[in-house]
Structures are given as C-alpha cells and as structure tokens.
Design a binder for these strands. Structure first.
Lengths: 339, 339
DNA sequence: GCAATATGTGAAAACGTTGCCATTCACAAG
DNA sequence: CTTGTGAATGGCAACGTTTTCACATATTGC
C-alpha cells in the first residue's frame, strides 16, 4: 500500500489551475492572485502535497546540503566543531555528516562520491589520506568548494582553505611549560605518522626540547586512542621512566593516567601528564588533566564562514590557512619536576 | 571558471553514438558491442565524465542514502552504534548522519524534512520529541521506513520497529546489586522526564527499591551531562548523603565522581557510584566506573537489519520491538555499603 | 472610452538520466 | 533466396519541477 506521493500535477488538476500556478504558489506566492492562492493552498493541505525534493534539487541544480566529514563521530571535540559549523549554516543549509573510518572500505568510497555530488560544499575534519585524496579530486574536477578544519593537511592539500591552530607552536609552548616546571626527562606520545596534526605537535615538542638543550628523542607512537595511551604508558614506564609524559591528544593522556594509576604512580607527584585538545572529559578526570585547548567551536564557525565564502565566490581562491589561538589549560595533572 | 560538468550528451556526441548507448555502457555494459564500449569508455575518461547523481536519483527515484539521526555526535556510545549500522549498510547504502540538537531551531527542522525526503530510510537514535514527531509524520505520510534504536519511545512511537535493551530490568538489577552490597540509602540521578529511556531506568530503580522495602524516592533530575551530574551530586551530598548514587548515564556518573572527589569523598569507600551505558571512558575513570553495558554495536547491527527488512517489504509491519541483552559491569566505583 | 500599464495565468521548454520500444543488420536455418 | 533469430543501437517519452514567454484580463491615466 505504498501510496504514491501526490505531485504538483494532481494539485493543479484538483485546484483547476495550471501547474505553473501551483509552482508559483510555492515559490513566489506574491505573484499569485489572492483567491487562487487560497484555493491552491487548500488543495495542497487536503492532499498533503509537498514537492519532490529530488526533482527540485535536480531542476534547480542546488541541494542546499553541506557535508561534514569526520573520521568517527564519538568525539566531544568534533561535536563542538560541528556545533560551531551548524550555528553558521543552519537555516541556509542542511548539515549532514559522514564518517571516513572505513567499514566495508571499497564500495563505501564509491558511494561517498555519489553523496559528494549531491552536496554543495564539504568541510573536512579529518585527514585520512585515501579519503581526502578522493575529496581533492572532486574539488578539482567538479570545482566543489572545500574547507579543511581542525587539521592542517599534507602539502597537496595546503592549497585548500583551512582553519586550525598552530600545532607546532602550541606543542612547543606546552613543552616549555613542562620544562619550566623542572622536568628534564619528558616523553612524547605521538600519533600516526601520516597525521600532519600530530606530526606538527611532535615537531613542536622536539623543537622545545632542543631549545632547552634537552633530549627530545623520547617519542613513542600510538594510535590516538585511550588504549594506545595505555600501551604507550606501559612501555614508557618500565625501565627508567620520565618525570612527565606529554600526549598528542587527550584520549591518550587519559590512557596514560589510567595506566599510571594502575601502577600506583601518583599524579602529578610521581608523574606529570599533559594532554592536547581539552576534550570534554579532561576537566573531570581524576586528577583533572592539564592540556592545551583548541577553540573548537570557533574553528567550526570560521570553517563554515570560509565555506560560505567559497560557495558565493567560486572563482577567487580567498586567503588560505587561518590560524586560531590555542590556550594552555593548567589543571592538576602536571606539577613540579625533579630538576 | 566554474566549468560545467560534461553530460552524457557530450559523451555521446564525441563518441558518435546515441545517449542510450552511453547510458548502457554505464549501466549494462554487457549489452553493448565490444568496440563501442571501448570507444565510449575512452571518451568518458577523456572528458572526465561522471553521471549527474541528482539526475540519476531523480530518474530512478532512488538515492541509496540512509539517514541516521543522533542528538549530538560527541558520544562514544553512539559511535559504536553507528559503527554497527555501517557494518551492515555500507556498500548498499551511503550512511549519513544528522544531529537533532537544535541550533538555529526553526528553519533547520524545515530543512531536515528536505533531507528526509531524499533518503530511503531513517534510523532514529534519539528521542527529542519535536524532531521525532516530524519523523513520524514523514513515516505516515510518505511511508518512509524508520527504525528506532537505543531508545524506547513514547507510546505513539511504539508502533515503529525498535531495537533496545530492557532499561527497566537493567536498572532494577543494577539497583538490586547495590542493595545486595549493603546500601540502603541510594539516590538516583535521572534524566529529563520526556526521555523514555531514563524514565524506564528510573522506574526500574524505584521498583527494585520498593521490592527491598527501601525508600526509592531519592530521585534527582539532571540533563544527562557531566555538569548535570556535578550539580546533582552537590545537591545530594549536602545534608545526609546516601551511601550510593546510581546515575541514569555514565556522563552524569563521571560528574558525580568528579564532584565527590573534589569534596574529598573516597570512592567506593565513602560513596559508591554506578553508571549506565558503559561508554568509552567508564573503564578508565579513576576509579574505574561500574556501570551497565548496552551492546551498542549489536543494537546498531540489528537496527540496520530491521531497516533493510522494512525497505524490502514496505507492506508488512514486521515484528515490533526487539530487546537485546544488557550486562552489569562491575568495576571499582562500587563497594560494600554500611548495612 | 481609449491607450497604456499592471496583474494574473497557462503553455511549453528545459534539467540529465534511464529504459522501453522500434529499427537495423548479420547471420543461420530452412 | 526467404525467413527467422539475436545482437547492437537509436529514438523518444518520462521522471516532477521551475521558469521564461506570451497571452488575457483588470486597472489606471488621460
């Protein structure tokens, strides 16, 4: 009993007018006679008509949909960014999200393309290479407006407008803070090497260590997850442990804290832990996690504005990367070091 | 310099064939002569043609897009559920997400409708009433397949297929566990009253208390957020505090733990805290949070399968609500009570 | 009361595909 | 040589809308 939706034609017939008139009632009601309008609207209500969005989009060549690509939705930070994006776009565009984490990998990618073409712009909040490469192609081939948020990307992507913090500077400031606290042996838990965000943070760490004449080679690699942090901590804390561990994100820092707690290590007494991102649970960790905060909502807002720019002026490239301010948030997981 | 995308017509001309043939090359290549196919494919490559997805969907009346509605993306639990959904749907459908949390409220809703109509099915993972009501209308009016996941919904929604745990039973078991531990004064931190999930949990708590002949009226209301938990805890812990607090979700439980820690209350020594959901950070809280786990991924998988069913057999209602197993996860935030 | 101008309306052409049907052609069977 | 068969291809309508253009009618200014 799938009843076919009524079309504009049916409305026209019932109201005894032409389809043009019905269309006008929908889109330019001021250009329609008063009583005609009334009659048509009545019929529209009666048959519960609403225009076929597919046909509309097709005809207009416009979908009013913006796609936001995230790697995985379960992150408070992303939630903030998306909130910022929506605060700008809502009303003008429907914001839909897609995850780039692969599940059935191959065919999915293909379908993403399909999605992408029904979309008027994309905000990329992730940098997984195979996926972003596809997106770039689309940008080139179809002239699809794209803005990168949160992540500075590989060199080929740097031509695209992007909005993020200065990860290098942030990490090196944070490291300097740790050094100022008297820590000399500091380990850094980095993320996957393809990620330019964590790479920048890693380099910031090493630069700050070098500046202070300290050994910045104590770098471990994990996968940015809590478990990654736990494993890294277990590695790091055997043998001669450092007095501080700086993590490329909060999830790993939380993992490190958990592993340290399990080993009976007092934080920050025996070990200082510093995170990155200031995600939602950082403040209520036990002890509350020191971290460097990204202005997530702001990033979303700016990215959305840039996208709007790009859509409205498809021809001019616009200024490229936009750097927002980070902020070192000192809570209780960091304390004085031995030195 | 927005260059118009080439259409099938252009390809046809360049290849010296009819557009039907080009279309066939795309959709039924076996029905095309070998050398024609080759020639057409060459041209397609040359001009970098790919069919206009909007036109295709319009023509076919099929978009191959499934919409998943979540209240807000920043939750590990949802991430799991979505993972499950995608493991079933990827390849057959593109899965896109939308948040129901309002930002620019009114106009947004309107646009959601637009989105909804380009979509072949919806999985609702949230129950915010104004939004879900809209969805229901769509279901009725357009016969749009819908499945509810994670949340049992209001009576009017109970007609829709849904997949979730037995929140009443789970909460009452968890409460019984607390009682068995020797707790007599137990507070419950509930969520907003419109939410049927938290309502069920609340009722489960009260029933278990009543069964044990205890006072189950110690119920506080918060908004399911960490801060809500903190505030609730501050209320509860002044005066004559209970020996255990059971929260309707983990976020609030984490908030309660944080507030308790700030007050110098030992957990579980002075206060036991029990959460609900087993979200990602529950296991690494300090101390690790006892909670009741939902089989999130399973819920996603089942919901997706139900949706597929509903799409394939639009006429039969199919069996209605499907109950999956919960599991009490005992970690270190709960301990023996005074009694 | 007549031209000039608004105002409201309808006919029809698009938008880019797909798929049915008809056509052509080659080739095998009679 | 005719007829029948199958494969390969082209023509064309259709999907539901929006929009341009032209037409008819109503309104205004003399």
């Amino acid at each position: 009993m799938r009843l076919a939706s009524p079309t504009i034609v049916e409305v026209a017939q019932r109201a005894g007018v032409s389809i043009s008139t019905v269309s006008r009632c929908l889109n330019h009601p001021d250009k329609v006679g008063k009583k005609t309008l009334q009659r048509v609207r009545k019929v529209i209500d009666e048959v519960n008509f609403s225009p076929n969005a597919l046909a509309q989009s097709f005809r207009r060549g416009k979908t009013n949909i913006i796609l936001v690509v995230v790697h995985e939705i379960g992150s408070g930070l992303l939630s903030e960014v998306v909130g910022g994006i929506r605060s700008v776009l809502d009303g003008r565009y429907a914001v839909i999200l897609t995850e780039s984490r692969p599940d059935a990998a191959q065919p999915a990618n293909f379908i993403e393309m399909l999605v992408a073409k029904q979309v008027e712009g994309v905000i990329l909040l992730c940098s997984v290479p195979p996926f972003s490469r596809k997106i770039i192609e689309l940008n080139k081939a179809r002239n699809l407006p794209i803005v990168i948020g949160l992540e500075p990307l590989s060199d080929e992507l740097r031509k695209l407008p992007s909005v993020h913090i200065d990860n290098f500077a942030a990490a090196s400031e944070a490291t300097a803070y740790l050094i100022g606290l008297g820590h000399h042996r500091i380990a850094f838990v980095s993320g996957p090497r393809q990620s330019y965000v964590t790479l920048d943070r890693e380099r910031g760490f090493m630069a700050a260590m070098a500046d202070a004449g300290l050994d910045g080679s104590h770098v471990h690699y994990a996968d940015l997850s809590v478990n990654g942090g736990i494993n890294a901590a277990n590695d790091i804390l055997t043998g001669a442990p450092p007095s501080a561990i700086f993590c490329a994100n909060d999830d790993m820092a939380l993992g490190v804290m958990s592993a340290a707690a399990r080993r009976g290590l007092a934080i920050p007494g025996a070990l200082s832990v510093l995170g990155f991102d200031d995600m939602r649970y950082a403040a209520i960790a036990n002890p509350p996690l020191s971290t460097v905060a990204q202005p997530a909502r702001e990033i979303g807002i700016h990215a959305a504005r840039r996208l709007l720019d790009a859509i409205d002026n498809p021809d001019e490239p616009g200024r490229q990367t936009e750097i927002l301010q980070h902020r070192l948030v000192i809570r209780s997981s960091t304390g004085r070091g031995p030195g």
